[in-house]
Amino acid sequence: MIRDAAREFTMKEVLPVANALDGPDAEIPMSLRDKMAEMGYFGITIPEEYGGLGLGIFEYCLICEQLSRGWMSVASIVARAQGGWIMKSMPEEMRREYLPRVVRGEFLNASALSEPDTGSDLASISCRAELDGDEWVLTGNKYWCTFADGADYLIVFARTSAPPSPDKRWEGISCFMIEKQRGGFPPGMTGSPIPKIGYFGWKTFELALDGVRVPKRNLMGPEGKAFLLMAKGLEGARAHTAARAIGLAQGALEDAVAYSLERRQFGMPIAEYQAIRFKIATMATEIEAARQLLYFVCNEIDSGRRCDKEASMVKYFASEMAERVTSQALQIFGGAGYTKLFPVERYWRDARLTKIFEGTSEIQQRIIANSLLGKSEVEGMIAGRAFGGQVRQSKEAA
Rank of each mutant, 00 (worst) to 15 (best):
R3C: 09
A5W: 02
A6S: 07
A6K: 00
M11K: 06
M11F: 08
L15F: 06
P16S: 09
P16M: 02
P16F: 00
V17G: 01
N19V: 12
D22E: 12
P29H: 04
P29G: 12
R33K: 15
M36L: 12
E38N: 04
Y41N: 04
Y41V: 07
I46N: 04
E48N: 11
Y50E: 08
E59S: 15
E65R: 11
E65L: 06
Q66K: 11
W71F: 09
I77K: 07
V78W: 00
G83F: 01
G84V: 15
M90V: 07
E92F: 07
E97C: 13
Y98H: 07
L99W: 10
L99S: 05
R101H: 13
R101W: 02
V103W: 00
R104L: 08
G105V: 08
F107S: 01
A112D: 00
L113I: 00
S120F: 01
D121F: 09
S124I: 11
S126Q: 13
L138E: 06
L138W: 02
D152E: 06
F157R: 03
F157Q: 02
A158N: 11
S161P: 00
A162E: 02
S165E: 11
D167Q: 14
K168L: 09
W170I: 07
W170V: 04
W170E: 07
C175P: 12
F176G: 08
Q181K: 13
P187S: 13
S192I: 15
P193D: 10
I194L: 02
P195W: 03
G198K: 01
Y199N: 14
K203S: 12
T204R: 10
V212T: 06
V212Y: 02
V214C: 09
K216L: 08
R217H: 09
G221I: 09
G221R: 10
E223G: 14
A226C: 11
A226P: 09
A237S: 10
T241L: 02
G247C: 05
G251D: 05
D255G: 06
A258C: 04
F266W: 10
M268Q: 11
I270Q: 06
A271L: 14
R277A: 15
E286I: 12
I287P: 00
C298F: 02
N299G: 15
N299L: 06
I301K: 06
S303M: 06
G304P: 09
A322N: 05
E323P: 03
Q331N: 12
A336F: 04
G337Y: 02
G337N: 11
Y338M: 07
F342C: 11
V344W: 04
E345S: 10
R346N: 08
R349T: 01
L353E: 07
K355V: 02
K355H: 00
G359F: 04
G359C: 05
T360N: 03
Q365E: 10
L372W: 12
S376Q: 07
E377G: 09
M381P: 10
M381H: 12
I382L: 14
A383R: 15
G384D: 12
R392Q: 14
K395N: 13
